[in-house]
Simulated scan of single mutants.
Amino acid sequence: MAETVSPVTRQVTKEDQETWTPSIDIRIEDVEDCLLYDRHGVSIPFKKLYQDRKSVIIFVRNFLCYSCKEYVEDLSKIPREALEDADIRLVVIGQSAYTHIESFCSLTGYPYDMYVDPARCIYQKLGMKREETFTDSAHPSPHVKSGLLMGQMKSIWRAMTSPLFDLQGDLHQQGGAIIAGPGSRVHFAHFDTNRLDHMPINWLLQLAGVQQTLDFSDKPNIIHV
Rank of each mutant, 00 (worst) to 15 (best):
S6C: 08
V8I: 14
V12Y: 11
V12Q: 11
D16M: 15
P22C: 13
S23N: 15
I26H: 12
I26F: 04
I26M: 06
I26P: 03
D30N: 15
D30P: 00
D30T: 15
L35E: 13
V42P: 01
I44R: 10
F46N: 02
K47H: 02
D52T: 02
S55H: 02
I58Q: 09
R61D: 08
E70A: 06
V72K: 03
D74H: 08
L83W: 02
E84R: 14
R89Y: 04
V92Q: 05
V92A: 10
G94T: 03
A97C: 03
T99V: 05
T99S: 04
T99H: 01
H100G: 00
I101C: 07
E102P: 01
S103K: 02
F104Y: 15
F104P: 10
F104K: 13
S106K: 15
S106W: 02
G109Q: 04
G109P: 06
G109T: 06
Y110S: 09
Y110T: 08
Y110M: 09
P111V: 14
V116S: 11
R120E: 15
I122M: 02
I122Y: 01
Y123I: 01
Q124S: 13
M128H: 03
R130W: 07
R130H: 06
E132P: 01
T133A: 04
T133Y: 05
D136S: 15
A138L: 05
H139G: 07
S141K: 04
H143Q: 08
H143L: 12
S146E: 07
S146G: 09
L148R: 12
L149R: 00
M150K: 14
K154A: 11
F165S: 10
F165G: 00
D170M: 06
G175Q: 06
G176A: 07
G176F: 05
A177T: 12
I178M: 02
G181L: 07
P182K: 05
V186E: 04
A189W: 05
F191C: 11
L196M: 12
H198W: 08
H198M: 05
M199E: 08
N202T: 08
L205E: 01
L205F: 00
G209K: 06
Q212C: 04
Q212I: 14
T213Q: 14
T213C: 06
T213I: 13
D215V: 14
F216P: 03
P220W: 10
N221K: 11
I222Q: 05
